[in-house]
Simulated assay, not measured.
Amino acid sequence: MKATYQKYILDFKRPSGTSRGILTQKETWFIILENEGKRGVGECGILRTLSSDDRPDFEEKLKWVCQNIHIGPQELWKNLLEFPSIQCGVEIAFLSLESHHPFELFPSEFTSGKESMEINGLVWMGEESYMKAQIEEKLKQGFRCVKLKIGAIDFEKELGLLQFIRQHFDEHSIEIRVDANGAFHPKEAIEKLNQLATYNIHSIEQPIAKNQLESMVELCEKTPIPIVLDEELIGVFSIENKRKLLERVKPHYIVLKPSLVGGFTGANEWINFADELQIGWWITSALESNIGLNAIAQWTFTLQNPMPQGLGTGGLYTNNIGCPLEIYNGRIQYNPSISWDTKAINF
């Protein structure tokens, strides 16, 4: 077996804002496997400044993987505990290599085009007018669940945007999720959550920054809105620590990005504990190209979670990999009549 890797820079169609700054490009890495005339490809979707494997030896570790590809996916996964995006890329690459078709990793009613999945419409941070335009567009596109990134512009203006939605749609028509990406200060968080609660919010992701465990425990106890852990899960590698974190904080939900939590194997560990502790969960992409998004969407379908998933990021880039994933009426579907176009990565 031969393994190679390559870097690929994705260009955003327009700058996209989070509370951590404005994104214009997204770096990603592909692992390509070749064995007995077959090929497979996986994506290591690192998110700089957020992924726990954003470290100087990242590329060195990719080289190590390619040199040791013969030890197989399970052994590689164990040796890559501190490199979750590479764990994810290796898992996808082996699934791709071993599949009948390199991009149909989990054959199902989804990949046959017979079934689709509900997803949330993502509204990026920006000027009030830009955010309002995005909200109107998502509602027009048939989304029943919208997710707003908050915490970057004036909080009163963000409340105004929520009021704008609720003037036209109640919580039975449109589910609103908000994601603060850790933007609130612990001392002001409960007051802000109380204000948000008046708009019948479904949930808030990561209201305060990670590693403020006592404050997060207290928030989860007192909050009027269900709290979702996101960044808090990043960098928690051992099974024992995963269980400890969920038992201690008792969040209402967790959101799982396979590229940030060790691929499907790592995500399944979190899901098992969450189910045991009656904590809800859903799956979100982490701005991967369509190679990673396709794998994550197919895997997510097999979990049969009825909640809207966070898989609507495929249309963000000008130079994404052409693929059969489509978004229609607030749902993601796989259209088998559309061919893959992988010329950009020589696959």
Rank of each mutant, 00 (worst) to 15 (best):
S85D: 07
L162Q: 09
E171Q: 13
L97C: 04
G151Y: 14
S52G: 05
N320K: 08
E231L: 09
L229P: 13
S289R: 01
Q278E: 07
V178Q: 01
L62T: 04
A286D: 01
D53I: 07
T24V: 09
S173P: 03
E128V: 09
F83V: 08
M307Y: 08
A267Y: 00
T49F: 08
T4Q: 14
P207G: 14
K7L: 13
Y334G: 12
L293M: 13
P186G: 08
A3N: 09
T318M: 01
R331W: 00
L47M: 10
H252L: 02
C44Y: 02
E98A: 02
V217Q: 15
W29M: 01
F169I: 07
L95V: 00
T302S: 15
D54M: 01
W281C: 08
F143G: 07
L10W: 07
R144A: 13
N181G: 06
C220D: 11
L161G: 14
P107Y: 04
D154A: 12
L233C: 05
T300M: 11
M125T: 12
L246D: 04
N200P: 13
L316W: 15
N211S: 15
E137W: 02
A267N: 03
Q212A: 13
S16G: 02
Q74W: 02
I201Q: 00
L213K: 14
K222E: 15
F143P: 10
Q278K: 13
E104S: 07
K222G: 09
I32K: 14
D179W: 01
K78I: 07
A267I: 02
K26A: 07
S238Q: 05
K138T: 06
V178C: 12
I153H: 11
L260A: 08
D54L: 03
I31Y: 02
D275S: 09
A189P: 09
V41R: 01
I345A: 07
F301E: 00
K192L: 15
F58S: 11
N211V: 11
K244T: 13
I92H: 02
S215G: 10
E91K: 00
E104T: 12
S51P: 03
L213T: 15
G45R: 00
C323T: 05
L139A: 10
L81G: 13
Q212P: 12
L23W: 10
E137M: 11
A180G: 10
E247S: 12
S289D: 14
V236K: 03
N268T: 09
T265W: 06
E232C: 03
S16H: 10
S51Q: 04
Q278D: 12
G315P: 04
L148C: 14
Q206T: 12
A180W: 05
P15E: 06
A295R: 02
D154M: 05
G126H: 10
Y334C: 09
P251L: 06
E221P: 00
N335R: 03
G315M: 09
L139W: 05
Q6C: 06
W299L: 07
L311S: 05
I283V: 15
I9M: 11
Y5C: 03
Q309T: 03
V228W: 00
P186E: 07
E276S: 14
E218F: 04
N329V: 00
L23G: 01
N294T: 12
I190V: 09
N335V: 04
G330V: 03
F110G: 13
